[in-house]
Nucleic acid binder design. Sequence first.
RNA 1: GCGAGGGUGGCGGAACUGGUAGACGCGCCAGACUUAGGAUCUGGUGGAACAACCGUAGGGGUUCAACUCCCCUCCCUCGCACCA
Length: 838
Amino acid sequence: MARLSNGIKLNVGKEQMEEKYNPEQIELYWQKIWGEHNTYAVKEDRSKGKFYLLEMFPYPSGRIHMGHVRNYTIGDVVARYLRMTGKNVLHPMGWDAFGMPAENAAISNKTHPKTWVDNNIANMKMQLKRLGLSYDWDREVNTSLPEYYKWEQKFFIEMYKKGIAYRAKSPVNWCPHCMTVLANEQVIDGKCWRCSTEVIIEEREQWFLKITAYAEELLKDSDTLQGWPERVLTMQKNWIGRSEGCEIRFGIDGIDDELRIFTTRPDTVYGITFMSIAPEHPLVPKIITGKTGKTATAFVERIKKGGTKARAIETGEKEGVFTGRYAISPFTGEKIPIYIANFVLMEYGTGAIMAVPGHDQRDFEFAKKYGLDIKVVIQPGDQMLDPATMEQAYEGHGTMVNSAEFTGSDSEKGKKLVIEKVVRENAGCAKINYKLRDWGISRQRYWGAPIPVVYCERCGIQTVPYDRLPVELPMDVDITGEGGSPLAKHEKFLKTTCPVCGGPAQRETDTMDTFMESSWYFEKYTSPRATDGPFDKNALAYWMPVDQYIGGIEHAILHLLYARFVTKALRDLGYVQCGEPFINLLTQGMVIKDGAKMSKSLGNIVDPEYIIQKYGADTARLFILFASPPEKDLEWSDKGVDGARRFLDRVWRLVYKHIDRLKPAGTANIGIDDKSSVLRRLTHKTIKRVTDDIKDRFHFNTCVSALMEMLNSLYEMDEKGIEDKQMPAFREAIEVLLVLLNPFAPHITEQLNKELGDTPIVDRTWPVYSPELAYENTVTVVVQVNGKLRGQVSVPESSDENEVFAAASKDEKINSYIKGKQIRKLVLVKNRLLNIVV
RNA sequence: GCGAGGGUGGCGGAACUGGUAGACGCGCCAGACUUAGGAUCUGGUGGAACAACCGUAGGGGUUCAACUCCCCUCCCUCGCACCA
């Protein structure tokens, strides 16, 4: 077996062990050793089982925060544990280095984004190393480097050629002063967050990725993600928002056009009493007519001005206006009034709906407000609905009524039957709709990966040839934050030649959404220095998919959905073999202080660097793991940190106290006397507890508890005196304690292990639990009488109910509850409990 | 409104397939060592009308036995929120 330490040499027994635990000195020492020996570098090794363990890489904001410490410590425990179980563990780290904050910093401190980001990376890397995280730093990626985004540009071009990337007009938030697109969260009360200019919704040409083409697969495959938290899957499912129904075309009275609607309730078509269309619907100008025309136009203008967001906020109040036109029902031939309604969204379905106020609450409210007809076409089993007295729509299922030939059928079956009729009569088709929209990736920003496209006056849109990639982001730019993207003003970048005709052409100046870089970085880690292609195929095939992904719940939808999509797209481009990138996902909770999430804006942050300086990295790690199980929120407590440090001090002191006896003892000749056996029992019970909790449950807090209990017991035994003949067993206990504690507190354990003169823990294997050694021939059995705890007895292991009962009746206290009463039943839980029912 | 998760001492949290509720840590109390200790060690610590009683948000049920399973109610957190 290859030594992870790459030959760390120990100068055994030369120096006197320090009496006091000095974390800083020890931690810096071991971090230097690990760095010099490249201890955590890995290679593909088919003789070993691989494990790809990944934590979400950070945005290089400058300093790490407690959330990072928590995320990466959790990952590090798993990594260190798995290595000791013999797994070949890939545990990489890198930087999500493109994005807005770098540009904002450039504007406010006149630093170039690259300088800012590079400095931040250097600083944060130092901080991560100071935590003792076991990363293979040889695999570090920085998404803002051309050698990284070059491949992203290639993927983009290939996607374009396959029709996955396309250009289209779409409405965006646009600040006319800053001349840039703003993300939704950058629009505050309808105004630009930077200059307070009124933001307008503008149609702009944008690049999109066709994630909708994968909607069905993303949804279907989410059922295979057994290792994901249920709520993340639910969020994604809701986000994809699949709904089954049909599209129906209605004629429009008086003009040669048709109105297409989507419904999930074809069984209610005979209850249609009006139609509603979105204010933005393209047919609106065409169909507004007659006396109502002016009112309708004014209404449309008013609603449009409010913007989609404002409309969503004022929930409840439904408003609309009659267009003056009628649709023709393909079922009854009736004329149905067409309304424009504020609650109909252009973005979903066809932007038009059939209104069935009897069976849809929104339509019901609308109909009540404007005095429109309500028809009942579904009757529930238990009551008779009457349109005149209904107080709300009946949205459930039942029996179809007043529905021509469908009258009498079950509404669920009716859905199918109506769709069949619609298809037969050529009035529409069955249809599945998704809420998921295509992913707009254009950003009018400088600090991102350029979209590798040029615009030629003669040849139109042309992609950059592969041999001219990367399209490098120029460094000599003036970043003001005003007047649009600096790239659009950069002559040298902008002006280029058409790859087809050689004539003058302009480059695309939009850059890609930074979610693009984070959608494939985990694949890049498998072969970060590959230059012939984005990946080394063998390395990629060996490591992917990620076995365990760990990160914050805030990425439940965007990042995780994009990453799944891009992996599928890369699979279809022939790069990746797997369709799902992350087998298991752990979403860790937030770090809380004083009842609120730690954040700069709330001023309740605790700086990890300060904690490390004051207590040491091992203490910081231990506290964070001990305070709460990973998926729950963690309440920060300074006192709790003291407690973690106290524990490490106690470990140190116990070893220090006995170091002279421990060192020569060895573990070769462990005694078989009672005290030695007790020690070994303790050791092996702890191995089991820690291993079980770390293995599948990731309940590190209980692992730490078990180790604390073990230490407490060792102190207790020490109090009573440990004789020389028990030293081997004592030494075994200490060794095991150190190895079990090592994933949590790697430096102190490695140091104490060195003091004992053992091979480095990184080279050791995880201790194996021995049931024989943990076996106890006398067990304490709890005795209940009628389910109430009344005492306990000591009996030989595996005693049956009669034996335990016999022992119990000798106990005075227990006997007082059962004497003179008739024993009706004895319930025994072997070695644990006896319930005497009297 | 819909969906998911949660409610256990003064606090963070244990109790995994129903089997000693409160492990472990913090805090608190007492004692030891000490000129002193915010160091360390030892003991105690759910509540009480302290041997028997009551206690896992509240109410009911199943069971020899319920934090755990079932039904109802309340509260908190997160996500989605006119998606037709």
